[in-house]
Design a protein around this nucleic acid. Structure first.
Length: 502
RNA sequence: GGAGCCAUAGCCAAGUGGUAAGGCAGAGGUCUGCAAAACCUCCAUCCCCAGUUCAAAUCUGGGUGGCUCCUCCA
C-alpha cells in the first residue's frame, strides 16, 4: 500500500498519516443540525467525507466513522416554535429526511450517528470536568468556557482572542468574563427543551456536543475530524479548547480535514442570494449520482463552482432552472454506464477465467490507491477511471490480434475494477440499465416529450429498416430529431435516447 | 481592522522544484445504408513584475484580480 499523506488544516500542510492504532482509523464528522430541508452543500460535505471514508477502506484501514446529529439547537427551537412543533420531533423528522437524501446521493450511513439529546449525561460530564479544571465558570445557570484559560486557543483558525474582539459584530453578553467566551451550558428558558444539571435545568450550548460525542464514541484521542471550512472558527476551535481543556494536551483529533465550499457564480450559497438549492431539487433536475460524479471531479479542499441558469416569471418566482455543469457530468456518467453495460453484455458469455490480461487492464485499483493516498485526490482517480473505460471500449470494439481468453479476462477485469473504484467515489453503484432508463425518463420529462408517441415512431422505424425502406426510416429520424430524440440502430433493433446537449 | 484561500487552454479541472493528468467544447479520421455510440489524431508553458536555482506553474518578495472566515452558514 502506498503511504497515505493528508493535508492537516491544523498544521497547514500535507503530512504522512500515522493512526493512533495501526491499521485503524477513528473519524468524526460534524453532521447537520436538522431543522429544515438539506441543501446541496450538506450533500457535498457528506460526499467528501464519504469518499474519504471509503478511500481509507480501499487503502486497507479499518474505519470507525462517527457523524453526529445536532438535534438540540437554537435554530431548531426557533423553527419549531414558528411551526408550533415540538423541537425534538422536528429535528427527528428532518434527520430522517436528511438520511434519506444522503442515501440518494450514495452516501453510506455512518457507523455511529450520535445525537445531542441522547448524550446529555456525557455533555454534563465534560462540562463539569471543565469547571473543575478551572476552564469554565458558571453565571446564574449558564456555564461559559473561559478562552483565556486555554493558552493555545486560536491555533487552528489563526485567530487570537484579541483580534476577535476588534472584529466582533455580535452583542457581547455582559455576564461573560471575556467577549470570546462561549456557552457550554445554557439555563432553561420557557418553551425550550431542558435537562437537569448541576447548574439547574438547561441545555447544552453549541460546540460542546461534539467534544462529548467524540470522547464517547472514539475516545479522548482519535485520528480524523472533519467538516466544512466554515466550521473551523469558531466551532472546531472551540471543540479543541473544550476537549484539550478537559483531557489535556495532545488529546482529541490528530488531523483536521475541511472541505471547500460550493459556490454559485463565484458567490457562496446563501438564502439572501436566492441560490440555495435543496438536495431534492438537484436530484430531480439531474439525478443525485450526476451530482456525486461532479463532486468527484473536484478536490475536496477546493471551492466548487456550481453554475446554474434560472428564469423567473413576472413576480420573481423561479420558473425554470438548469444546472449546465451537472448536466455535463450526467452525460459523462452515462458514458461510464454505457461502457459498463457493454462490458456486462460481453462478459455474460464468459469472463475468461484466471490468468494474464492485456497491458493496462489491471492497474486501475492501484492507480486509484496511489491517487487517494495523496490527500484523497479524487480528480486523479476520475482520470484513471476514464482511461480504464476507454481501454474497455477499445477491447470491446476490436479483438484483432488478442488471444480470445485474454481479451475476455481483460474486459471482465476492467468492469470489476471500474465498479470497485467507482464505488469508492460513490458512483457506478447502480445497474447500468436502471441508470440509463432513469436518465432517459428524466430527460423525457425535462423536454416535455410524449413518450408513447416516440415509442410508436421508433417501432415504425424499426419495421421500416427491417423492410429496407430506408427512405421511410430516414424520414422518421428527421421527424424526431427536432424533439431532441436520437435513434440508435443496434444489431438487435432500434433504440432511442434523448439528446441532452447544452 | 484581523486571519486565510485562490488565479493553469474557449470552459471545467489535476499537478507544489525537473521541461503541463483528465474531461467538455472544437478540427480531422476509422466504423456505419444514413446516423449515433465507440475508438484514433490534433489542440495551453501555467495573472503580471522582480528574485533564488543548473532547473519554477511549482520557492521568495512585490503587484493585480477573485473568494472565504472573524455572524450557530456544510
Amino acid at each position: 500500500m502506498p503511504e497515505l499523506r493528508i493535508y492537516d488544516s491544523f498544521r497547514r500542510q500535507k503530512i504522512p498519516f500515522t493512526p493512533v492504532e495501526p491499521g485503524k482509523v477513528g473519524m468524526y464528522l460534524c453532521g447537520p443540525t436538522p431543522y429544515a430541508a438539506a441543501h446541496i452543500g450538506h450533500a457535498y460535505s457528506a460526499s467528501c467525507f464519504d469518499m474519504i471514508r471509503r478511500a481509507l477502506v480501499l487503502l486497507g484501514y479499518q474505519v470507525k466513522f462517527v457523524r453526529n446529529i445536532t438535534d438540540v439547537d437554537d435554530k431548531i427551537i426557533k423553527a419549531a416554535a414558528q411551526a408550533g412543533e415540538d423541537p425534538l420531533e422536528r429535528s427527528r423528522r428532518f434527520t430522517d429526511e436528511y438520511n434519506r437524501e444522503m442515501r440518494l446521493f450514495g452516501i453510506l450511513p455512518p457507523d455511529v450517528e450520535p445525537r445531542v439529546s441522547t448524550h446529555i449525561a456525557e455533555i454534563i460530564d465534560v462540562t463539569s470536568k471543565l469547571v473543575a479544571n478551572g476552564k469554565a465558570y458558571e453565571v446564574s445557570g449558564d456555564v461559559y468556557y473561559s478562552v483565556a484559560s486555554f493558552a493555545p486557543y486560536g491555533q487552528l483558525s489563526g485567530q487570537t482572542p484579541d483580534d476577535l474582539r476588534a472584529g466582533a459584530r455580535v452583542d457581547v453578553d455582559e455576564r461573560k468574563r471575556a467577549p470570546a467566551d462561549f456557552a457550554l451550558w445554557k439555563a432553561a428558558k420557557p418553551g425550550e427543551p431542558s435537562w437537569d444539571s448541576p447548574w439547574g435545568k438547561g441545555r447544552p450550548g453549541w460546540h460542546i456536543e461534539c467534544s462529548a460525542m467524540c470522547a464517547a464514541h472514539l475516545g479522548e484521542t482519535f485520528d480524523l475530524h472533519g467538516g466544512g471550512k466554515d466550521l473551523i472558527f469558531p466551532h472546531h476551535e472551540n471543540e479543541i479548547a473544550q476537549s484539550q481543556g478537559a483531557y489535556g494536551p495532545g488529546t482529541f483529533a490528530h488531523y483536521w480535514l475541511h472541505n471547500g465550499f460550493l459556490n454559485f457564480d463565484g458567490e457562496k450559497m446563501s438564502r439572501s442570494e436566492g441560490n440555495v438549492f435543496t438536495c431534492t431539487q438537484i436530484a430531480d433536475a439531474v439525478g443525485a449520482e450526476a451530482a456525486r460524479f461532479f463532486f468527484s471531479s473536484h478536490h475536496y479542499r477546493s471551492p466548487v463552482e456550481f453554475e446554474y441558469e434560472a428564469t423567473r416569471d413576472a413576480d420573481g418566482k423561479l420558473a425554470t432552472i438548469r444546472f449546465r455543469s451537472l448536466e455535463a457530468a450526467d452525460r459523462r456518467l452515462a458514458y461510464f454506464y454505457e461502457t459498463l453495460s457493454r462490458i456486462d453484455a460481453f462478459v455474460a458469455s464468459g469472463d475468461g477465467g484466471p490468468g494474464a490480461v492485456v497491458a493496462g487492464a489491471d492497474t486501475l485499483v492501484n492507480d486509484a490507491r496511489e491517487a487517494l493516498s495523496d490527500d484523497f485526490n479524487a480528480p486523479v482517480v476520475m482520470a484513471a477511471l476514464g482511461e480504464a473505460a476507454k481501454l474497455a471500449n477499445k477491447l470491446l470494439d476490436e479483438g484483432k490480434g488478442i488471444d480470445k481468453q485474454v481479451r475476455r479476462r481483460s474486459i471482465a477485469r476492467l468492469g470489476a475494477d471500474l465498479r470497485t473504484v467507482g464505488n469508492t467515489l460513490g458512483i457506478l453503484t447502480a445497474a447500468p440499465i436502471d441508470y440509463l432508463h432513469e436518465r432517459r425518463e428524466r430527460l423525457v420529462k425535462r423536454r416535455g416529450l410524449d413518450r408513447a408517441a416516440i415509442v410508436a415512431l421508433v417501432a415504425e422505424r424499426d419495421a421500416a429498416r427491417k423492410a429496407k425502406d430506408f427512405a421511410r426510416a430516414d424520414a422518421i429520424r428527421g421527424e424526431v430529431a427536432p424533439l431532441g430524440v436520437e435513434l440508435l440502430d443496434t444489431p438487435t433493433g432500434t433504440d432511442w435516447r434523448v439528446v441532452d446537449a447544452g
